[in-house]
Nucleic acid binder design. Structure first.
Lengths: 344, 344
DNA sequence: ATAATATGCGTATACGTATACCCTATGGCG
DNA sequence: CGCCATAGGGTATACGTATACGCATATTAT
């Protein structure tokens, strides 16, 4: 039976049926305390019966609040399809869930690092705030972040948390994680520990992981050898190349700390090809605990970031910024997952 | 120098500066042909200078078009965090890109299959249409899809394409893919081929894959043995359990077609534990070509779906439906990726 | 009993854009 | 030279909600 009143009901329709004015309907549904319990109940009942739902556009236009947050995802190296870092994908899950819980919609967009996202999204009133995710050259990033701050845009960023980082940042304790990796290597008797990953200030997170590693080594009285550090971005190929370079360097090593699991997987391939046995000849630790980490042979010891906590924290921090609070950066601990690649 | 006019510029501001009326600004920026080239150029220049950007809410409210599409993602078995099928995640990439290309925003939301998404999203005017993604019990799904159709909601669904499927569907050629798997097994001399995956009408895609397998076997004069089919949902644990059941069944088999790579990976674990050698004793084919498929040992032969094409097709089909066209369902071919698990 | 609140709601209006409609000036045509 | 079509753009208004005010009635304080 088509009992369709021909078009979607508005707050006027339900006001008429409830015998009140339209503003009262608005107040009732938004939970204003200046409407009596009886009236509110009646309005809610009618609204439910009519399948009424607040028009998001009208609501946002009037209140200047969209109840939507935008997630901008950067992919710097690969404009090609789909080889997204699995780590961010799982964070996506917890972010969406957290948004839903808080009654926010999530707008998502993939961007090239060099595009003009900072202009476009700064405001066409699409969202109340922005979450920034992704790796990429930090120095490129920097200018755009500054622009956002200048424009007063509300945003949170996932990345390296330090005093001089721009805007509000949430991230893993990369230094602490690096220390864990180093301590674990030392515990199993390794002393010549290599690091694969960009350790410059173009990649602050990787840099922090390296710093942590060095710190652990120093604490154990070992002097980190700069010759054992080779740059790499987070990809399998890049890890493969870095490991080849390390081998070609001719400096002895008995352990590798890779700045990401993808790097580690590429490196393992290079080492295996070179006839080295893992973990006997070279122990390996990765970073992220992507699903593939438990499928490599040997299975990969790695540092698991708290993705669930990360998503929740990012959303929470952003919403508080939107509400005008001053929010402090926060840091999440990482957990070492021991697998075969460090089992001696 | 803060030359901020205190608040975001509106079309009135730029109309004033251009010496025209507000509607002319609107027309010029939307590309109406009833505004002279000179006027339009002038307006566009001023708009750019002021960093003017059309207010999405006002625009949508007036025009009743949001230029946004919603992506609803279902996860039936796991309400827990993050173990999303990697296949859908990579489709996400191509969907977002395609949306961006077409000038649409993408709203994303994860849903439990049994929640009331069909009511909530049907329209609070958040989006012009919906893309539905995810596995789950099809019979549960069915009723909600019918409701959507009834309400006139525009949507596209990723899934099994058949005559009786509800609404507009885009999907892989699962039957053809199953045939490819079967033909490949037969080509390498296998005849006792098992299938791991739900083959009932609760999972039409898996059912189609099984149908294709059977078809290939029949074409080769082999009679499919129902005892070699064991139900499984798309997860590693489920694949492990199914393979255990298959082994326990006591019926001989020399090949397994798994309905997904996750199932295949779980099954490989079970077989290895049981002392079977792959591919010598049992050949294996999976489905999806997730990143992990090239990391298992042996590496996994699998069917790769055209995710890039899928995303594009989904978005394209939906936009055409939104524009009122009648759109036919479409089917995408899958490609067999041969790896070690079928290399005899 | 009267002034001072508070409660519950109606009136009016603003949010910023898009579109239906109308008007003017021009040019082409007979 | 009068008529009509057309280009170009102005006027008025609608989209559906949220909020600033104001105004009764009910409640308390004095």
């Amino acid at each position: 039976m088509g009992r369709q009143p021909s078009s979607k009901p508005t707050s006027f329709d339900i006001a008429y049926l409830a015998g009140v004015s339209q503003p009262t309907v608005s107040r009732a549904l938004r939970g204003s305390k200046s409407v009596s319990a009886a009236t509110r109940a009646n309005i809610e009942r009618i609204a439910r019966e009519l399948n009424y739902t607040v028009d998001k556009n009208a609501s946002s236009l009037r209140s200047q609040r969209t109840h939507t947050i935008a997630l901008l995802f950067f992919e710097d190296p690969t404009p090609d399809e789909s080889m997204i870092n699995p780590f961010f994908l799982s964070m996506l899950g917890s972010i969406t869930r957290q948004c839903a819980l808080r009654g926010y919609d999530l707008l998502i967009s993939f961007q090239q690092m060099h595009s003009d996202w900072h202009v476009d999204y700064q405001d066409s009133h699409r969202s109340d705030g922005i979450i920034l995710l992704g790796y990429g050259d930090y120095q490129l990033y920097r200018a755009k972040l500054e622009h956002l701050v200048e424009m007063g845009t509300k945003f949170v960023r996932w990345g390296s948390v330090s005093k001089d980082s721009i805007g509000l940042t949430v991230g893993s304790d990369n230094i602490g994680a690096g220390e864990q990796a180093g301590a674990h290597f030392i515990e199993i008797g390794r002393r010549r520990i290599a690091f694969l990953g960009d350790a410059s200030d173009h990649a602050p997170e990787f840099q922090d992981r390296y710093t942590g590693l060095c710190r652990a080594m120093c604490a154990a009285g070992i002097d980190p050898d700069p010759a054992l550090q080779h740059g790499a971005v987070s990809s399998e190929e890049s890890g493969y190349a870095a490991a080849r370079a390390l081998l070609a360097g001719g400096h002895a090593f008995d352990a590798i700390f890779a700045a990401s699991d993808l790097i580690a997987i590429g490196a393992m391939r290079a080492l295996t090809e070179a006839g080295l046995r893992l973990p006997h000849d070279v122990a390996m630790i990765g970073f992220d605990d992507i699903p593939s980490a438990s499928l490599t042979s040997p299975t990969l010891t790695t540092l698991m970031q708290d993705m669930k906590g990360a998503g929740e924290l990012l959303v929470d921090a952003l919403l508080r910024r939107i509400d005008g609070e001053t929010v402090e950066p926060s840091v999440l601990p990482a957990r070492l997952i021991k697998r075969q690649s460090t089992a001696v």
